[in-house]
Simulated scan of single mutants.
Amino acid sequence: MVISIDSPLDMHLHLRDMDMLDIVAPLSAETFAGGLVMPNLVPPVTTKEAVCDYRNRICRAQGDHCFTPYMTLFFRSDYRPEFLESVKDEILAIKLYPAGITTNSEGGVSGFDLEELSPVLGVMSDLGIPLCVHGETGGFVMDREAEFIPIYEMLAQNFPDLKIVMEHITTKEAVAALDRYDNLFATITLHHLYITLDDVAGGLLQPHLFCKPIAKRPEDRSALLNVALGAHPKVMFGSDSAPHPRDKKEAPGCAAGVFTAPIALQGLAQLFDRHGALENLQAFVSDNAQRIYGITPPAKKVVLEKTPYLVPEIYEGSVVPMFAGQSLAWRVVSAG
């Protein structure tokens, strides 16, 4: 069996910088037509110059692959309207992180004071710049996303013309919120469609499956599968592929992040095939994102074949992928 996907998109992607960027950028660019690149570098991407410089570094690192890096800014409440106007054409979205909630988010938002956030959110709404949000509180780790839903609702109600993307949703509560507000959308990762917390810590600890937001309960995974496999028009694929060196994952203080970029399409094809939903993969991995963000990615056809594919144990001696050393049922046979 053979399938093809037109212009697959990864709408939540960590490419890091420097040596790590050189390793992982070609792995995304090989099989995807574009990706929404996260801005949580050190220091974070908060200026027009930083956006342009980072894009240039990505383009150099990706080599000759046909791939568009869609850039983002790190949300700050002190951005001036004239700055947002000047940077609008260089970015696709602005990413909001609660302070300290995930990797390199220390400069994020502390508290969600509507009066403080409104000036920037109002200008974003007027300019048509979407807001992407890492939606977790600082509460008990299993409840953080569900506790954040009222904040999403507050934002959606007060800024009805602002597109708000709930990033890497993991709970049935987030899925339910999708249909309550016209301006709420979501990305879903590969790993949250496959795993629950039991896969991470139910036996021996699996550090390469540890991520934030943490994997949740079986009923949460079922809710995610339902909207992803059904190609719900408000959800799209965002890998949240988050590479860390092996010595930072297999260590005390394990870094959060699952590296899925080079095996994402194979893993998705296997999953959608297993559930008899291959006809919906195109919408989940490309069409919905194009409509939601109003983008036209480069033309790129990726062909996959139902033939076993052995996932490498490690890439460039540094980064361990999800499914390392395991066999997937689908492989990429061409991309271009």
Rank of each mutant, 00 (worst) to 15 (best):
S4Y: 15
S4L: 00
S4A: 15
I5H: 03
L13Y: 04
D19H: 13
P26G: 06
P26F: 08
S28A: 15
G35D: 07
L36P: 03
L41I: 04
T46A: 10
E49Y: 07
D53M: 08
Y54F: 13
R55Y: 06
C59Y: 07
Q62A: 02
Y70P: 11
L84Q: 00
D89G: 11
A93M: 07
K95N: 12
Y97S: 01
I101F: 10
G108W: 03
L114H: 06
E115Q: 09
S118W: 06
V120L: 05
G122L: 02
S125I: 05
I129A: 10
V141Y: 08
Q157L: 15
P160D: 06
M166A: 12
L184E: 08
F185K: 06
H192D: 02
L197D: 15
G203W: 07
P207D: 00
P213H: 05
P218K: 07
R221D: 02
K234A: 03
D240N: 14
P243A: 08
R246F: 12
D247W: 13
K249S: 02
E250S: 12
A251Q: 12
V258D: 01
F259Q: 04
T260E: 10
P262M: 07
A264I: 05
L265M: 07
D273S: 14
L278M: 08
L281C: 03
V285S: 13
N288C: 11
Q290R: 15
A299Q: 13
E305T: 05
E305L: 10
T307D: 09
P308N: 01
Y309N: 02
L310E: 10
P312L: 02
Y315G: 03
S318W: 03
V319W: 08
V319R: 07
S327K: 14
L328K: 10
W330E: 09
